[in-house]
Amino acid sequence: GFRCAVLSCILSRYFLKMEKKESITFAGAVSHVYGLYKGAMLTLMIDIGHRTGLWIAAAKLSRKGSSFTSTQLAAEASCNERYVREWLRTMTCGGMFQYDSNGELFSLEKPYAMILGGPQKTVVSMALISSLFSRNLDKYVDVFKNGGGLGYEHFPEFHGLMAELSKQNFDDNLLKEYMPRTGDILDRLKSGEKLRVLDVGCGGGHAMLVLAKEFPKSEFLGFDFFSGKALDTARSIAKSQNVGNVQYKVGDASKLSVDSFEAGLKFDLICGFDVIHDQKDPQLVLDNISSCLAENGVFLMQDVAASSNFHENISNPMSPLLFTMSALHCMTVSLAQDGAGLGNMWGRQLATKMLGQAGFTDINVAAASDHVNDIFICRKPSRSLHANI
């Protein structure tokens, strides 16, 4: 999908060309730091452009094949011209617009129109995330000094934004890339067999909606402990689309058991998308997931593609972004509960070890096509295998 293409382009055409520098001069260090500050400032302006509709308006005007003035863009986006003029000048200096001094005309470069002014928000949303984190700067300073963490209540908009990003991922990749890795589970779903599927930490609930629509004879359940309003929205969407084989339940994954559900039935497929590393007690949650999995069932886990050995992450161009998101959200929400504070860079080695401790013996790890995530397909030994030993 478009999301994967954008991320692949970022990695292969720019970031992966970065070379390790053995040493750096004072002037080089100053230039590097100021370059980071420049990027931070541009991030704020990217966010403003998204929130005000300037990117969409600029892309629309550019698609018409003509350059435009700040007055025309302001009118298209219903914004104040003076602010729009300064915004355009900023973005032009940032390399995103072309400028013709004859008439003070601007034009948005086509690639930027695609990733910033199109329907996909994977790239532009990073600016929104940065802005949201900046609101908690004083609180971050406090926990850096005194320990503890910031709970989910400090990130009310963040989870809606991540649900939106996840929706794109599920629409693009869930059926085409993730589910084929489950092997016989997908075959059984396609055959019309009635399977039970659970999404732990389902957020906005879109993954289960996608699967429920595709496999109407099976039952799907989204489970999350802090997304009450989001789950109400998910229920309304499912109802409006006449999808009757999906349900959503508020619950705590640390207390997950077969008794959490009607008739104490187990699940043939359990999913966990970018959720385990946020938990207060991730090992307990994995243990609970294992106990709720039916014989010959599969646990499908998506998590950040990282190594548990820090030095192996240093050359990864995405590491600065991912470690920042880890410290400012994933790790701190766990520490706020006196939890493990794994963070999203816990790595595939530790993940595999913990999955093994939860009883999974067949663990397959594959890189996702977006170059950002790993996909874990986990199975437990069957009873028939035990019987033959």
Rank of each mutant, 00 (worst) to 15 (best):
R188P: 04
N344C: 14
F226E: 03
G297C: 09
I363A: 06
Y37K: 15
V285G: 01
N388L: 15
F225V: 11
G201P: 01
D362P: 04
M114G: 08
A5Y: 13
M179T: 08
G203L: 00
D232M: 15
R196T: 00
L44A: 08
Q168I: 14
K266N: 07
C4A: 13
G251N: 05
C202K: 01
D172W: 14
F144V: 07
F144Q: 06
S125P: 11
P180C: 02
N245G: 09
L350I: 14
N296H: 12
E164H: 12
I237K: 10
L186F: 08
D187C: 14
A77Y: 04
S131F: 04
K21S: 12
A40K: 14
M301Y: 05
A387V: 02
L137N: 13
Q337Y: 09
A58P: 07
Q283F: 05
M301A: 04
V246F: 08
T25I: 12
T361I: 01
L269F: 09
L174K: 10
E104K: 07
P119W: 11
S107M: 09
N373S: 05
V333G: 00
F273W: 07
Q120M: 01
L73H: 11
S326C: 04
I48W: 05
V365N: 04
F225H: 10
Q357H: 11
K21G: 05
A58M: 11
F267N: 00
F97D: 01
D199L: 03
M45E: 15
A336D: 01
C292M: 15
H386M: 10
L198V: 15
N309R: 03
G222Q: 05
L385M: 06
G28S: 04
V84M: 00
V333N: 08
M208D: 08
F144P: 03
E157F: 08
N309H: 14
A74N: 05
N364D: 10
K145V: 09
L321W: 07
T71W: 03
R383F: 11
L61R: 05
L322Y: 02
K194H: 13
G205H: 11
G204H: 09
N296S: 13
E153S: 12
G343L: 00
T352W: 10
C330M: 10
V6I: 07
A207K: 02
V246M: 01
T332W: 03
R383S: 15
S369E: 07
L198S: 00
G339H: 11
E104M: 10
K353H: 12
A77D: 01
I276M: 01
